[in-house]
């Protein structure tokens, strides 16, 4: 958590989109910006990219006020996926409240997915976060491409971890909101146990999720994306 101020009744959370280079983290944020209502979110801040590759990070903030008056701000970041930007990844990961790991579905990206995930494990340990309790979702992106790992294979490799896995095409727009919604829901569960959001602030899980994830009028997009 970035900040919790009981007197000012303000809570600032951080969610991080992690994953290998070019897996579609920035595209996920662009889609959220596109598919969610303006009301309740801020503007997308893209911090200097070079040829599609994030050098620092991107940021999309969301806002919500609990019935108690507690102001909740959720800052959603992407990290740069390129290996050389590891320092930046750590700085972004600091005090994260939840992580979405965006994997690239293409066969040839298998190794980089694995490397990136173990890099996530290392860095979480380094910044003092426990991967077993941290809200975490995985998204297999680029499902619109040929030569991708099968859903069955994905299922088999992740089932034992208990981590929710989603299929998506950030480019086409499906699966993106679903991934985000689950991450937000998991984040709520953990916050509620620590800050008694429901008891003290009258904010239950559904209201939290509905307040942060407000899709624009149904677009038909998203039908195909789903949990594996």
């Amino acid at each position: 958590m970035i900040e919790y101020d009981d007197i000012e009744r303000k809570m600032v959370l951080k969610l991080v989109y992690y994953g290998p280079a070019m897996s579609g983290k920035t595209t996920n944020l662009l889609q959220l910006h596109e598919q969610l209502q303006r009301n309740g979110r801020g503007d997308l801040m893209v911090l200097d990219t070079r040829d599609d590759r994030t050098i620092f990070f991107d940021l999309l903030p969301f806002f919500l006020v609990a019935p108690s008056g507690l102001k909740i701000k959720v800052k959603v970041y992407t990290v740069p996926g390129q290996v050389k930007h590891d320092a930046t990844r750590k700085a972004v990961l600091q005090r994260a409240d939840g992580v979405a790991f965006i994997a690239d579905s293409q066969h040839r990206e298998r190794a980089s997915n694995v490397n990136s995930f173990s890099n996530l494990e290392d860095n979480l340990a380094l910044v003092g976060l426990d991967i077993d309790t941290l809200p975490l979702v995985v998204q297999y992106n680029k499902r619109d491409l040929p030569d991708i790992v099968s859903e069955e294979e994905i299922h088999n490799s992740w089932q034992s971890t208990g981590i929710p896995v989603f299929c998506a095409s950030a480019l086409k727009g499906w699966g993106v909101v679903e991934t985000f919604r689950r991450l937000v829901a998991l984040t709520y569960a953990r916050l509620d146990s620590r800050f008694l959001l429901e008891e003290r602030h009258g904010l239950d899980r559904d209201a939290f999720v509905a307040g942060l994830v407000r899709p624009r009028a149904a677009t038909g997009v998203g039908e195909r994306g789903g949990e594996v």
């Binding site: 970035i2 900040e3 700085a91 972004v92 910044v127």
Partner: peptide, 14 residues
């Protein structure tokens, strides 16, 4: 030195 302590937090309120 990868093990240095990182105290800067991206996202602190301004």
């Amino acid at each position: 030195s990868e093990r240095e302590n990182i105290d800067y937090v991206v996202g602190e309120e301004k």
